[in-house]
Amino acid sequence: MNRLLGLVLLAGRRLAGGLLLLVGASFLIYFTIRSAPGDAIDAITPMGTPPEVKEKLAADFGLDQPPLAGYVTWLGRSATGDFGESLVFAPGEQVMTIARPAFKLTLLVSGGALLLCLFLATALAVVLGEPSPRQQLLTGALYFVTAAPAFVAAIFFSQGMNAFVRRFVEDAGYDTPPWYPIPIYSESVMPYFFAGIVLVAGDGLFMDMLNTVRAEILAVRNAQFIAAIRAKGASTLPHTFRNLVVPFVSAFAARLPVVLGGVVIVEYVFTLDGAGYLLLEASKQRDFPVVVGLSVLFTLAIIVMNLLADVVRAAVDPREVARNG
């Protein structure tokens, strides 16, 4: 009971901290906007924007007020999910209306990629076991291969796939798959799957994950209490799993920002309908409310992930509540 109470208190404190961070981050984002050179409104809107649109935008973002008052106005609107209307990308459309489905997709792709990465890294870590000099050639090669930025990996991947399909499907006279040649826009789920693979294989994510996961698994496997459990004749598996939950959740949460960075460019390379593509497209067309809305959403995702990770950690590890109690 005591433990449960401690957990609830910790979750409450973390929630408050998360809100504070969100306010702080939105403050930084807002003042980045305000720091625009010259007349902010001209700097951020595309040329030839009608004056009434500019006025509405200025009102939405509190640009017609002094910075702090403007921030409060903007924060108040944003807190209700109102990030204004899109200017160019989908004129007149609420930012949230276009951002929400795109963002869901992006979270799905990055979360899926991260899970896949965690799974593959764990599998390889179990197969490799204790580090030995003989494995160094393999890990060295893997290190090199997975260090490519995700967008370079994406290009290698799509070029390789295209060459493969051209050679063994098209030239052989079979029907080409709907996603060929990459990248073309298609309804198929394959490009999302490809994006996931590329995210796992790029940005040094995999080796980073492998090293972490491997160290954690070895640390638990070689822990004194595992020897003690073995010595008393009990199965070590349940104990091992339970003790790996915290490091695994931490490893997952800590890498979400990396993947959310990678996914932006990868979505663009594969022309996926995600938030990354939307962000870059909107930024290119200077559709400023969309860019700001998405920036807040990305930040929110990271804060929520850290919050969840903290709560899971505290739920699994009684020391966590004691430490932060």
């Binding site: 004194q224 209490f225 020897a227 003690a228 010595a231 008393k232 004749g233 009990a234 339970r242 020391r319």
Partner: peptide, 29 residues
């Protein structure tokens, strides 16, 4: 293990699973 021979190791605290109550570990035995 356990049935024929078992051990009390050098560092008592490190020998206990940190995420389980003493009771759960003793019950297991």
């Amino acid at each position: 293990w356990g049935r024929v021979m078992t051990a009390v190791f050098q560092n008592p605290r490190q020998s206990l699973d940190p995420l389980m109550t003493i009771g759960a570990q003793l019950d297991e035995s």
